[in-house]
Design a protein around this nucleic acid. Structure first.
Lengths: 192, 192
DNA sequence: GAAGGGGTGCGGCAGTTTGCCTCGTTCTGC
DNA sequence: GCAGAACGAGGCAAACTGCCGCACCCCTTC
């Protein structure tokens, strides 16, 4: 039995991920922000792995690595993030993270990333052949999110015409299969 | 005076980079492949930094990290790669690399990356809202690279038609082209 | 040498998408 | 009530895409 701590501010996504991981025989504890994570840490007796969303609203997942490793030195820490940034990946690794993944990551991805030996680059990559369409769609969602759902500004940031963004969004009102775990909420009431 | 070891299989690019770094007051030693690097290592008395191209033909820059650090434990190792992958960045860091950059990188980029503290990098991700076009282009290059330049397979992996990939590639200055001379010029397709 | 098999480059065509312009409608703050 | 900012939508020319075919090249295998 693996004990895993999941820190994810999107409660819907957190619950979905928790359930999915449970089906893989993992005992999952969930926290939704930095302070809660620190509190939970004190209550745990054992921790084998931690999965941290890097973007926790006001908090930063990177800052949780140290406290976690301090309490559970052997714990494997996996960072998750919407934007895969190489600089962030390097920073996370320097701080002691075991691996670094970009969303959307399936439970399988997560478990593999935790189990893998990250110093050999073979494992993680080849099983991620994102189609161009999917990549675009996710980037659009992210950008839209970053602009509080403002289509005009998002389109501008993306370098495409507002009308085009409008049309694209309309073509795929519901999230694609891949997006299932990201949740289908396109509500503009986001925090960041 | 900083002593730097540059390992880059493209001899032209290596020379350009060497000259550029020299102008910044750096003493540069150059090697073009793995074995040569190992040989050079034995001849050096001091080494402050190493810049490794990850893709050294048959050799892999990652495998040079250990020998370098073994001989010069305090040496700062910077990995360079054409198409950066997060997995590779994590792997490099786990192996002791100080930082990881994607080409094209200017001498300034290199020096900054070597000087920076990569773990304290304020990692609020959305620093660079990439345009859709740029994102696509990078993904295409990455995929192409992962398939050894095989257009047919890359197109398949990307989920687009081979003819479409072909046409897209033709429309832009080839990456391998401008990499070769990226020494002082800015990238042609600088979208915001 | 003669077939394959896989890959590339390219022309063409019909259907789709995009860029751009325009209009009408909300919603908000002054 | 009005200006400013967004949104949704229609329309059209231009660009792009998928798809088919064809010629050529390089290898391997008869």
């Amino acid at each position: 039995m693996t004990n895993l701590l999941l820190v994810e501010d999107d409660e819907l996504l957190a619950e979905q991920t928790r359930q999915a991981l449970s089906r893989h025989g993992v005992q999952v504890t969930v926290a939704h922000n930095g302070p809660a994570t620190l509190a939970v840490l004190q209550q745990l007796n054992q921790l084998d792995a931690a999965v941290l969303d890097q973007n926790l609203g006001p908090d930063n997942g990177l800052d949780l690595i140290a406290p976690i490793l301090e309490r559970f030195p052997g714990c494997r820490v996996l960072l998750l993030t919407g934007y895969g940034s190489i600089a962030a990946a390097v920073a996370a690794t320097h701080r002691g993270a075991h691996n670094y993944l970009t969303k959307p990551a399936t439970p399988r991805d997560i478990l593999e990333a935790l189990a893998a030996d990250p110093s050999s680059l073979a494992p993680a990559l080849p099983q991620t052949p994102p189609s161009l369409q999917r990549l675009e769609w996710e980037h659009i969602q992210r950008t839209l999110d970053a602009h509080d759902g403002n289509i005009s500004r998002a389109a501008d940031a993306l370098g495409i015409h507002r009308r085009t963004l409008q049309r694209r969004l309309k073509k795929r009102p519901s999230a694609s299969e891949y997006q299932r775990e990201k949740g289908q909420q396109t509500t503009p009431d986001n925090d960041n």
